[in-house]
Design a protein around this nucleic acid. Structure first.
Lengths: 220, 220
DNA sequence: GCCGAGATCGCCCGTTCGGGCGATTGCGCA
DNA sequence: TGCGCAATCGCCCGAACGGGCGATCTCGGC
């Protein structure tokens, strides 16, 4: 493996990579893995967001591989700062957990890729080349999770009915009666609504309902 | 008294009146009082909203004197039905209590006058003539109360601050901390808000806040 | 000068809410 | 043929909510 250096495609100048992680062990591991691919070259390492910015300016790497979680300036913040300073920077975020919720923030902040540290060597190389080629890379499992998170904001028809009951000042029991279901089911819906709308209580959920256009002003 | 029949003004055809009240005693009393005024003439009586509509169509009275509270179809509902069927109908509502809250609904539903049953004979006649002449009549005391009720919708600056806390999903205690006051005071404000916005709970209050323009969409 | 209204604080109490653990059914999509 | 998800139902429980009874103080209008 890793002996594709002679192929016409790989004979180009290697992709220059900057590693950012507070754990030197991880940096070592990544460097070792990436070193096996002759089309890739680690040109610098940084321990935190601040260093990352400095190293980036000094080395002008093609790709930044950065941990999402770091002490001090978080990976997400560092990503934002980096993208603000150098919008052309192509950053691939790394995460420890398989199902990291930060994925949304990372994408929103301009990450070009998002990988779990458990990623296999082949996929890592593939991801880096893909991102270097101008694309975005998110593993299958994470993409699915992204969809879930996206769908998660959209209330179901039933949930909107319940939300509408809330905005009228109905209690869970009242809503249950109105919809001819049990109070417990209403509570289940309410719970789902609070989660999806990231609200602490029904009052905030109603506010979010208006903000998201789920509820319309009836009597202006 | 009642011998003004010869005066030029009173020589016109008398004002034809329909009485609507579920208590025959009240109808009798009104008929007796109105009978003292030769410019007025009771041309029919009804015991409920349904009868009222029938009698109105049959007699085409100039003025309807109707109780706000009646079993079955309430006076307010009957008023609405009447105004819908005959927009030209001029209706004066009667109430038992001096400070009836229904006054707002009655006015909103198109009543031309609103009187307590304790009204004096002179004022009753005056009111009927005024309404018959195309005007609206509400006694001094009730007019003042109307103002109060109107002002009552406007939340104070402090109350809007509390409402804003609600829409953010803050608990009473949280709001108290944010505003540096006691939780109890917040509860007092919340209570006032619920009353003013006619809401059963904070969720509905928030909805009303948006509907009344007190709250603005922050994140569309 | 008094009255009303707003803002502040106090206690009690029943109901509701929201969270935490469950669970089964049916539908669509892979 | 599963897997995921929406919708339905179950119980327990602590905290929050809302109502009802208070109260004082200040400010502005009549």
């Amino acid at each position: 493996m890793g002996d594709m250096a002679q192929s016409p495609l790989m004979s180009q100048a290697p992709i220059r990579i900057l590693l950012v992680d507070d754990h030197s062990v991880v940096r070592m591991g990544l460097a070792a893995i990436l070193g096996l691919d002759e089309g890739l070259s680690v040109v610098g390492e940084a321990e935190d967001g601040t260093q990352a910015l400095e190293k980036f300016k000094a080395e002008k790497p093609d790709i930044v591989l950065m941990d999402v979680r770091m002490p001090g300036v978080s990976g997400i913040e560092a990503l934002r700062a980096l993208r603000t300073a150098c919008p052309a920077a192509r950053v691939v975020m790394l995460t420890t957990s398989e199902l990291d919720e930060d994925i949304q923030q990372a994408i929103a902040a301009g990450a070009c890729g998002y990988l779990p540290k458990s990623v296999k060597r082949e996929e890592l190389s593939k991801a880096i080349r893909h991102v270097h080629g101008g694309g975005h890379y998110v593993p299958e499992a994470m993409a699915r999770r992204l969809e879930q998170l996206a769908r998660r904001r959209h209330l179901s028809a039933r949930e909107i009915e319940v939300l509408d009951g809330m905005r009228r000042g109905l209690s869970n029991r009242d809503i249950a009666t109105a919809l001819s279901i049990s109070e417990h089911t209403v509570k289940a819906h309410v719970k789902a609504i609070l989660q999806k709308l990231e609200s602490a209580d029904r009052a905030e959920a109603v506010a979010r309902g208006f903000e998201h256009g789920l509820l319309k002003v009836e009597r202006p």
